[in-house]
Design a protein around this nucleic acid. Structure first.
Lengths: 162, 162
DNA sequence: CGTGCAAATGTTATAATATTGCACTTTTTG
DNA sequence: CAAAAAGTGCAATATTATAACATTTGCACG
C-alpha cells in the first residue's frame, strides 16, 4: 500500500486549501446561501492546517489582520460553515476543523493525534453500521454521532520509537 | 424481549445510587485510593439521575448543602472519579454521568436522548472492533474513544407519536 | 430606481465552563 | 513523632460560548 493519509505526511497543503475553498463556493452556490468574505476567510483560516483551531484562535488571526471581529463574528461564521457541512466541531477539543468530505452525506469519524495535533476525518461504513445496530438494539433513534478517537498517528509513533 | 433499558423507564433509582456507591467504595479500596467525603458526595450527586450533570450544577448543590465549595473542589473530585472509572465526561454536553460499568475495562458508547436528557451507557464489541479496524487501517494507534450518539430514546419517540 | 424586508454584521456585555497558584490541613509512612 | 504526600480552601483568572440590540448590506418586488 502507499503512504499514510494526507494529514500525516508532508504534502502541498495549499492545494488542500484551494480545493476546500473551491468546494465551498460551489456548495454554497448550489445551496443558494452566501459565502460572504468573513465566512470565506474563516474557512480559509480553519484550513491553514490539519490541526483543529479554536474559535478564539480564529478570532485572533482575524483581528491581527485588521478585521474588526468579536467572538460572535467567529461563532456565527463557524455555525454557518457547520450547517453547510464545511467544517466540523471536535467536541473533545472545543475546536474546529475543515471537512474533508464536503458535500457528501456522512457521519465523520475523527482520528486525533495527541502528539502532533493533526486530525484525519474518515467515513467507515462498518463503523456506522455497528453504531446504528447498537442503537437499534436499545430502540434508540440515533440522529447525530460524535466519534472522536485520540491516539498516535503513524508519524508520531515512529518518532516515539526512536 | 423485556422492556427498555433502565434509564428509559421508571425504576427504583435509589437502588442505582446505592449500588454505585457500594461499587465505588469497593473499587477505591482495591485501588488503595481514598474516596473522601467530598468525592463520595459528588459521586452521589452525579448519580441523582441518569441525566448528566454539569460541574456547576454539582457545585450549586454542594454549596446549597452548606459545603464550602469552589469550582476546583468539584473539578478535582470529578477528575478523581474519572480516573477511577466511576464517572464519565460527556464531551458533547460538557457534563458528567455516573459510570454504569464501573470496574470493567470498557470503551463506553453513550446514547443521549435530546428530549428527556437521559443517557444510556453501552459497551458493544462490534462497535469497538469496527473502530479499531478503521484506525488500524490508517496505521493510527487508538487510545481513547469518545462515542456519543444523540437522538431519541424509546420513551420519547412514543411521546412524539401521540 | 427606490423602498422595504430579510439576512448578515457590529458592538457591548455577560454567561458558562475550566484551570492556575498558593496556603493550609489531613493522612500516611518511615 | 517528623517528614512527605495527598487532599482541600480560596482567590483569581483563563477559556469557550451566547444574549441582546443596533446597524448595515443585499436583493426581490412594485
Amino acid at each position: 500500500m502507499s503512504a499514510h493519509a494526507l494529514p500525516y505526511r508532508p504534502h502541498n497543503h495549499q492545494a488542500c486549501v484551494t480545493q476546500a475553498l473551491a468546494d465551498a463556493r460551489s456548495i454554497c452556490q448550489q445551496q443558494n446561501v452566501r459565502l460572504t468574505p468573513t465566512r470565506e476567510r474563516v474557512l480559509e483560516l480553519i484550513w491553514q492546517s490539519h490541526k483543529p483551531l479554536g474559535a478564539y484562535d480564529v478570532l485572533a488571526k482575524l483581528t491581527s489582520e485588521g478585521h474588526n471581529a468579536a467572538p460572535p463574528t467567529v461563532y456565527r461564521a463557524l455555525d454557518f460553515l457547520q450547517q453547510q457541512g464545511l467544517v466540523h466541531r471536535i467536541a473533545s477539543l472545543n475546536a474546529f476543523t475543515g471537512c474533508t468530505h464536503a458535500g457528501e452525506h456522512h457521519t465523520g469519524m475523527f482520528l486525533i493525534c495527541r502528539a502532533c495535533g493533526n486530525v484525519l476525518e474518515l467515513t467507515d461504513a462498518s463503523v456506522s453500521t455497528a453504531i446504528q445496530n447498537a442503537a437499534n438494539a436499545e430502540a434508540f433513534r440515533a440522529e447525530t454521532v460524535t466519534l472522536e478517537v485520540a491516539g498516535l498517528c503513524p508519524g508520531c509513533q515512529a518518532e516515539k520509537a526512536v
